[in-house]
Design a protein around this nucleic acid. Structure first.
Lengths: 216, 216
DNA sequence: AAAAAAAGCGAACGGTCGTTCTTTTTTTGA
DNA sequence: TCAAAAAAAGAACGACCGTTCGCTTTTTTT
């Protein structure tokens, strides 16, 4: 029997990764597997330094089989970002449901939630800030957009705080951006504080410092 | 005549890069050339994605000749960092000569000087934050140490400001770290502000925001 | 000016990488 | 139950990478 597998068989389903496999549930399952296992490797060794053979070993899938689910190595990096972004957006939606609180409480809640998220996704965030520039133009644009949405959400909280006189800052979006970056500092420069402060201390310092930056 | 070039000929002069070439001035000159040209390539394509052949073309040196001045590709990354660090330390020494100012002025001077430096070395800083983790243990340790020294310098200024009642913060070193990170964030996430603010506006916002974080 | 030393050169080597190809195994459905 | 479709497998391919080696050219020394 002639093989039915030609490169031209690969489908481009909307804006997701192309795949030769027919069963969409299977594709979703394997994409998640590939993303999770690869993320660990990328974090440890970097994207460029991780080989397809290593990914094959980590996922338990043969190299040829991997290429039934992706079309190039870069697709795997996109998959990793996709999985992380999906999670972020899900937790964002939960936060959005609590809009009628007062700005101060909402702000603290946002900070605390973010700190928790940063802790959980420490490695993934580090990876994204290290290697997002390797993404294709479209995928990079999408990553930027998601970050922007998050910053704008925080800016809105600050804006309401200014209107009610509890916060004070020259520009809410600028302040939101700075706070956003301050939140991820632990991810990128953790070693600066290594051994100097306890986790609790660090969290406390961070929240106080951020607050002082926008308090009226 | 038998070639006198054996790998074992290479000298390890103290803690610098090993080289087969005898003339130290020539080594220094070529190391600088290699570092400057490679930095540009690394910034554009990343260290792992830049080939020795590209570095050869950019420097005008044959590949074999490059290896007369280094012993492995990673040495070139170290060279790039070395050149940048030397510059940073030089500008730091100038700033240290002005210790008897009042803390507020000194602080502003520090911030303005840093902003200027960040602007000049935008690409190099970006590169270092992206790829420092590829360095060998010793070189990474040295990079960390230099950053730490800078932070401690800022912390000392803040400390004096607290003693004189102009600044107020829970922990000077923590505050200094946060400020330091805020200063370089523009390098990494410049696109967040792209088209939103002018350069002058950005500088002004940044200084004001940082100041508010530690003002009494 | 000749010999020795130093510096420069680029083809060639061995290995590894991403990707493809063909075959084998498993699943599906009539 | 068995043939057709789908999925999995891994050997093979070709390109390219970092590095080396032996040679040539240039500079220095006597």
């Amino acid at each position: 029997m002639k093989s039915s597998r030609k490169i031209t068989d690969k489908k481009k389903i909307n804006d997701t990764i192309s795949s030769r496999i027919k069963n969409p549930d299977l594709v979703k399952k394997k994409h998640l597997l590939i993303a999770k296992k690869s993320a660990k490797l990328f974090i440890k060794k970097g994207f460029a330094q991780t080989t397809m053979r290593e990914i094959s070993r980590a996922t338990g899938m043969a190299v040829g089989n991997l290429y039934d689910y992706i079309s190039k190595k870069e697709d795997i990096l996109s998959l990793v970002f996709e999985v992380y972004h999906r999670h972020v957006q899900e937790t964002m939606e939960i936060q959005d449901n609590e809009i009628d609180e007062n700005p101060m409480d909402q702000f603290r809640l946002f900070i605390q939630g973010s700190v928790k998220n940063v802790k959980i996704f420490h490695d993934e965030i580090h990876l994204m800030y290290r290697e997002s520039w390797l993404l294709s133009k479209e995928n990079l644009e999408r990553a930027k957009q998601i970050e922007l949405t998050q910053i704008e959400g925080l800016a809105k909280i600050i804006q309401r705080g200014i209107e009610q006189g509890v916060f004070k800052t020259q520009d809410p979006f600028f302040a939101a951006s700075m706070i956003f970056f301050q939140l991820i500092i632990l991810t990128m420069r953790g070693w600066t504080f290594q051994g100097k402060y306890s986790d609790k201390e660090l969290e406390n310092f961070l929240e106080t410092y951020i607050l002082q930056g926008i308090m009226a």
